[in-house]
Amino acid sequence: MSPSTKTTKTTKVSSQDAAGHSTNDNTGLFFILPAVVWILLFTIFPLLYAVFTSFWSFRFGQRNQFIWFDNYQRLFTDQNIRWALFITILFVIITVGVQMLLGFGLALFFNREIKGKNIFRALMTLPLFATPVAVGYLGITLYYESNGPINLFITSLGGTGRPWLSNPTWAPIAVMLIDIWQWTPFVFLVSLAGLQGLPQDLYEAAEVDGGSGWTLFRHITLPLMAPTLWLILLLRVVEAFKVFDIPTSLTLGGPGRATEVYSLFTYRTALRFFDHGYAAVQGFLLLVIVMVIVTLLYGRIRALYEMPR
């Protein structure tokens, strides 16, 4: 911006407003500092405390012994955490995959003039804000084995009811279905917003050239929507990795450990077995995994957004 405001190095932050007028004071700091300090206070400090905690063994919920990296070593031999990680990754891949396909498909379908579309869109936002714990809790009745509505529906179609919540194969599916119910509208709403922002003249030009529906989709819609779709994927994957509420209220992680997802496993390590040090280590492992995925996806999104159209 304007070079005339070169300040001496003693000024920590020099401010200019976006139009390039120098303000030459620290007003900007006054605006931004409260939020920055707040977040630092409530995240960095607890994070440091978690690092400290991770080096200790605990007995009866009290710090017992400084054990260096022993808690970290346990990660490599712990069968249960391997299972928790596996079931969580499976959950992420399946739910996010289905949500992307269903949501984007529905958005393509609704990307036209339909009467009452706004009402339909409004109703689609309802699952997004329905308390996840409450939905899981309601799921207990929806999946009820004898005469629950889902099994009733299946039998009315001539199938046999499933042991949704008592069988280790069906319980994870039950959890995933609820997550899919809740978050497909998110993919739908965001991709619909993206589709409606696409430039129309491209389509008109292509149609004049005789492009068919599939060609238009393949060569115009998909490339133009790519940044939005990657972004949706990123947001969904991050949230899906944190899954906790639905399996906790629907199946309590069971039967056995069938739906004991990562966050639930860590929660139990911390507050049922009071193994705070090990729980802190588990938390960091999850953070690392999510950070790696975010970095990979974010780089991809950056590249797409900066690509000349």
Partner: peptide
Amino acid sequence: RFRFRRFDNGSLTTWFLSQRVMPPVLFVIP
């Protein structure tokens, strides 16, 4: 409206965003 010298605005925005990436369960213990 302001342009910060020490950290550019893009990094600050990313930093705010990154708060949403942290798994909450990491904070349960501390």
